[in-house]
């Protein structure tokens, strides 16, 4: 058996719908059509009352989810692309994220954001929005990088009593496969050391995990052992695992596909600098996309985002420091 990252997301939703009548999916084209990426394929046929097409109204979709959550439901909102969640931004950060703080009423909603770049998708179908939502108090932001995490973390997201922004990477939808769904799972808020090493630590998440692992593989031939930490959840951040790794390696590179100004990698570097400065043998480094909108042409796109080769280049510089 082989299951893709996308199928894992579909299976998690199917199980959640089966186990809890309070779960429903609301989003554009999610019903009979099965979603733009087929993340809800066949779910409408099994649960016609709870897999529902919405109008193209991201603001109202999230507002509806908050209202339903107030009534005790556990809605899953599918944004067709993460980029379009900007239209629902107000309801996410001001309504959903503040609800519990203001009213003591939990807001158990999951907002699925098909995120990140694929060749040819251009500026408005490629964005990574995790930083924007992580900035606001009250949100939990998950960024699964593996088939197993896509499944188990989505189930956990749906079960959590707070709004979860679930950033699932479109590049991984079809490229990433696993033999089976996980039996045992790590809590979503815990980072995972995916690869052990001693020369430097890479801290990353989502699709960039795989670029980091490829870079680490390439460098192994030269005798370099790179430790790779997958954050899994970028809010909150599991700093204990990050600092524990740096205590072993003394060097760190933080990688994110998102734009470079502010964001997850700068948060990581900032925290390492203040909480683990004495662990460092070299200045901490970060690598993000170029600070322009995301280009359409595949050659420009590949150059715009971090790749195994640019990661390797940064790591070699870091180790030489």
């Amino acid at each position: 058996m082989s299951i893709s990252y996308l199928e894992a997301i579909r299976e998690a939703q199917s199980l959640a719908l089966e186990n809890d009548e309070n779960v429903f999916i609301y989003g554009q084209d999610v019903g009979a059509f099965g979603g733009a990426f087929k993340a809800t394929k066949n779910l409408f046929q099994k649960y016609p009352d709870r897999v529902i097409d919405s109008p193209i109204s991201e603001d109202a979709m999230v507002g509806l989810a908050v209202g339903a959550a107030i009534e005790g439901m556990r809605p899953i909102i599918e944004m067709q692309f993460a980029d379009f969640s900007s239209v629902g931004f107000n309801q996410i950060v001001n309504q959903a994220a503040t609800l519990f703080w203001r009213t003591a009423v939990p807001c158990p909603i999951t907002i699925r954001l098909p995120s990140g770049g694929t060749p040819g998708s251009g500026p408005f179908h490629s964005q990574c929005m995790e930083t924007i939502y992580a900035h606001y108090p009250g949100t939990i932001v998950m960024t699964p990088a593996t088939v197993e995490d896509a499944y188990s973390m989505l189930l956990e997201a749906i079960a959590i009593d707070d709004p979860v922004i679930f950033c699932e990477h479109k590049y991984l939808y079809y490229h990433l496969k696993s033999d089976s769904l996980p039996k045992q799972t790590l809590p979503a808020k815990s980072a995972r050391i995916v690869r052990s090493g001693r020369h430097a630590t890479v801290v990353t998440y989502s699709a960039m995990l795989h670029e980091a692992l490829r870079a680490a593989d390439n460098m192994k031939n030269d005798g370099y052992e790179i430790e790779v930490v997958d954050l899994r959840c970028i809010k909150p951040i599991d700093m204990s695992t990050v600092l524990g790794s740096i205590a072993r390696t003394g060097r760190v590179l933080a990688i994110g596909e998102a734009f470079p100004w502010g964001g997850v990698t700068s948060e990581i570097i900032s925290r390492i600098s203040s909480e683990g400065f004495n662990l460092l043998d070299a200045p901490p480094v970060r690598l993000n996309s170029i600070d322009t909108p995301i280009p359409y042409h595949p050659d420009l796109w590949r150059y715009h985002r971090p790749t195994a080769s640019s990661v390797e280049e940064e790591l070699r510089k870091l180790i030489r420091e």
């Binding site: 109202a60 999230v62 507002g63 908050v66 209202g67 009534e71 005790g72 309504q95």
Partner: peptide, 10 residues
């Protein structure tokens, strides 16, 4: 308004 919609929808 959409929050009220959601309460009714639920």
């Amino acid at each position: 308004i959409s929050v009220v919609c959601g309460m009714l929808f639920a």
